[in-house]
Computed example of a mutant assay.
Amino acid sequence: MARVVGFEMNSQDPQRASSFYSSVFGWKVGAPNWGYHPVTTGSEEQPGINGGIALGPHDYAHGTRIQIEVDDIDEAIRKSKDAGAQIVRDKMEFDDFYLAYLVDPVGIGFGLIQNK
């Protein structure tokens, strides 16, 4: 079963968004890496997920996407496409993981992530 492991909030002003969520909810926001500010929303002993705040790209300037961890990102992309999803950004490689962005058949955006 694939599990939601994080979220990504996109903003045209990620620094301002980071300040807002930090001051209102006490989230810990880290230094940006690849333009992505990692966010810790609570202790590991509590239920919940962590995520990040990023500068939104032209194709997703504002909004929030969940990140779903999969064992095989290529298979998950294929199965998603077969079920009617559209690829927004095909598989990308980062140091420790692969990432892709899709939109489901009803327009909800999500990310797929596979750790290396």
Rank of each mutant, 00 (worst) to 15 (best):
M1F: 10
A2Q: 14
A2E: 13
R3F: 10
R3E: 14
F7I: 07
E8Y: 01
E8T: 08
E8G: 13
M9E: 03
Q12D: 12
D13F: 00
P14R: 06
P14W: 03
Q15A: 12
R16E: 06
S18M: 03
S19T: 07
F20R: 00
G26M: 10
G26T: 05
N33T: 08
N33F: 07
W34R: 09
Y36C: 07
Y36T: 04
H37R: 12
P38K: 07
V39Y: 00
T41V: 12
T41N: 02
T41A: 10
S43E: 12
E45M: 06
E45V: 15
E45A: 13
G48W: 10
G48A: 09
I49T: 09
N50S: 14
G51F: 01
G52N: 02
L55K: 08
L55V: 03
L55E: 11
L55T: 08
H58G: 10
A61Y: 01
A61G: 12
H62Y: 15
H62S: 11
G63Q: 10
T64V: 15
I66D: 00
Q67E: 10
D72C: 10
D72W: 05
I73H: 00
I73Y: 00
I73K: 00
D74P: 00
E75K: 15
E75R: 11
A76L: 08
I77D: 01
K79M: 08
S80Q: 08
K81F: 04
D82E: 15
G84I: 06
Q86G: 07
Q86K: 14
Q86N: 13
V88G: 04
R89A: 12
D90V: 03
D90W: 02
M92W: 03
E93G: 11
E93F: 04
F94E: 09
D95E: 13
D96A: 13
F97M: 14
A100S: 11
L102I: 08
V103K: 13
V103E: 11
D104T: 08
D104E: 11
D104W: 04
V106S: 14
G107Q: 09
G107T: 14
I108N: 09
Q114N: 11
N115G: 13
